[in-house]
């Protein structure tokens, strides 16, 4: 018995030891590029080539990159303005994605819809078509409908997230007993009111996940936003602006690697915080995937 426990203890030490080593290596791997970009944003090295290893452990911190990023005015456009645009765009996309995902998830879970599964499968498979197959036709269609603007972008961003999220929402709603709404509906709420008050609240993790993914997708998209919004510099999103300020859009423009880094930090850190704050919710939302349906 004692031998067994010793063996068990040794095994435990070994197991935990290896775990910690793996975790530490992976943690360094995860953090390094972010640490690198963070430090670069505080350096005065204008380009990649002149960045030295010593810049990763700087003696001096420079704020020129941030100053330039925040004060540059490009014919009426500026980084703060573009961030504001991005926030409006991403916020609206998140709200609409949540509504669409939850309504669809609710319908798939609760309502009696003919050929429900066929429909769901079909919608799901349709999202397998690549962006390259849909990009040109979408642009032409949206141009014809006078939708080459924020409205159009929101419309274009929404389904990708929502279809994926609708599946998770469906699973999540499955696990809420129908009796909750039935009681509410007996109390005089309409089905839609019951949906809003009961389901939205109980499926909060899915709501959070959908909002986050929807926000993320819209906040970070470059290709579509660029083709829709290019002509008006005041309407640019932060992503387009960052590309431009970093000299990636028009190679003839003056490039600055530290400005790119500063922009990355300003765009990335808030999103990162949002992610970490909502990670609990996300974990719970994804755990629906493992749930067993009776």
């Amino acid at each position: 018995m004692k031998g067994l426990s010793l063996k068990y203890k040794l095994f435990k030490i070994l197991r935990l030891g290896i775990s910690y080593i793996v975790l530490i290596i992976m943690a360094i791997f995860s953090v390094f590029p972010l640490y690198y970009v963070f430090m670069t944003s505080f350096s005065n090295a204008p380009n990649l080539i002149s960045l030295g290893v010593s810049d990763l452990f700087p003696k001096h911190i420079y704020f020129i990159a941030y100053k330039e990023l925040l004060t540059t005015n490009l014919y009426g456009g500026s980084f703060p303005l573009w961030v504001r645009n991005s926030l409006i765009l991403a916020g609206s996309t998140a709200v609409i994605s949540v509504l669409l995902a939850l309504i669809t998830g609710y319908a798939l879970s609760r309502l009696d819809i003919p050929a429900k599964k066929t429909l769901a499968t079909f919608i799901y498979i349709v999202t397998f078509f690549p962006y390259t197959a849909t990009a040109v036709p979408l642009y032409l269609l949206f141009a014809k409908m006078h939708l080459l603007n924020y409205m159009g972008l929101i419309l274009a961003y929404t389904p990708g997230t929502s279809i994926f999220a609708a599946f998770i929402a469906k699973l999540s709603i499955d696990s809420i007993p129908p009796s909750y709404e039935e009681i509410a509906m007996i109390d005089g709420l309409s089905r839609f009111q019951a949906f809003l008050r009961i389901i939205m609240r109980l499926a909060l993790p899915v709501v959070a996940l959908t909002a986050l993914l929807g926000f993320d997708g819209a906040y970070l998209d470059f290709a579509l936003a660029y083709s829709f919004l290019l002509p008006n510099v005041k309407q640019w999103t932060a992503t387009i602006g960052l590309y431009y300020l970093a000299g990636l859009l028009n190679p003839a423009s003056a490039p600055a690697y530290n400005i790119f880094a500063a922009g990355s930090v300003l765009m990335g850190i808030p999103l990162m915080i949002l992610f970490i704050v909502s990670q609990r919710m996300m974990t719970r939302a994804y755990s629906n995937l493992a749930g067993v349906k009776q």
Binding site: L100, I103, T104, Y106, A107, L108, L111, D112, I113, L119, I123, V126, T127, F129, A133, T134, A135, V136, P137, L138, L140, L141, L155, A156, T158, P159, S162, I163, A166, R191
Partner: peptide, 29 residues
């Protein structure tokens, strides 16, 4: 039934507009 249909309508419209139409158009191109 009609009521249920309204719940599922948005996603159908969006799918038709943003996936089915472009894919058929691409196929045609």
């Amino acid at each position: 039934k009609l009521y249920s249909f309204f719940y599922i309508l948005p996603i159908i419209l969006v799918t038709l507009l943003l996936f089915i139409f472009p894919v058929i158009y691409s196929l045609y191109i």
